[in-house]
Design a protein around this nucleic acid. Structure first.
Lengths: 140, 140
DNA sequence: ATGGCTGCAAAGCCTTTGCAGGTTG
DNA sequence: CAACCTGCAAAGGCTTTGCAGCCAT
């Protein structure tokens, strides 16, 4: 059986990107953890296994994955970007109290994209949507 | 007749915020231009009339307006935040080629917010949605 | 062997902060 | 007069870049 990580690495290889231990580790961490870590969180998580790896390498490779379309970047004002290896259609619900990010599946909004095209004369290729609120835990 | 700017200034005053020439100018610029300027754009636009004003003052006051709910902040990754004095329900369509931001009116998505609440156990208070594409001008 | 990748350090950019002096109500 | 606000400069946090050396193919 082939894993998502293996598929992704194979895909990268085809595009002429070398598979280094660091790249393997960063991509595995992103895909296995199913979380939305920051670059620094990834860095610290991998530090035990890659004591000499630098944060720059994490950033560099996240950029490679971004350009390959394997990872999405989530930006919220001041804070550092978060990275999401789940590129399927889904949205994020973010707790304004503790920062928890939960995934939320939802029928696609291509209908609304079309309306946006009509009303703005743009050619629309995608959208981003997030919900803000208070998580179950912080409501207590 | 009272303008939006005057209403906003009156509201600020009620909340104990002093109306300084800088505040007046920043708010007027935001509300009159109807654009989505960065802090630095605001700073440079007002420089001729306020040669001694500092960028810090722009940031400080934008924060004041944000907290008063008169302005929205739009964040996109690396780039500086953009500020929008239109706080009515609307969304933004952003050109990935030239960065143009166009407003897009759309029926509210409270329905979807409710679904998000059900499926995540969050109490949802708001959302953010943006569309990405290529503007009319850049399609040529 | 050659091009790409890493790691390091430094730089860059946006934003915030501390503080002294001035201004508003 | 007291509180608040400005302007300046410096600091802070995240991210990128330049470069020398290393490694995969």
């Amino acid at each position: 059986m082939t894993t998502r990580v293996q598929d992704a690495l194979a895909q990268l290889k085809i595009n002429g990107v070398r598979i280094t231990p660091q790249r393997h580790a960063i991509l595995s961490y992103l895909m296995d953890s199913m979380g939305h870590p920051t670059a620094d969180e990834i860095y610290r998580a991998l530090e035990p296994n890659f004591p000499s790896m630098s944060v720059a390498t994490v950033y560099n490779n996240l950029k490679v994955f971004l350009e390959a379309g394997m990872v999405r970047e989530l930006t919220y004002g001041d804070n550092s970007s978060r990275f999401d290896a789940d590129i399927s259609d889904h949205y994020h619900v973010i707790c304004q109290s503790c920062g928890t990010i939960k995934d939320f599946a939802c029928e696609s909004l291509t209908e609304i994209e079309r309306k946006a095209e009509e009303s703005t004369s743009f050619k629309v290729f995608g959208h981003r949507m997030e919900f803000y609120g208070i998580c179950n835990h912080c409501q207590g």
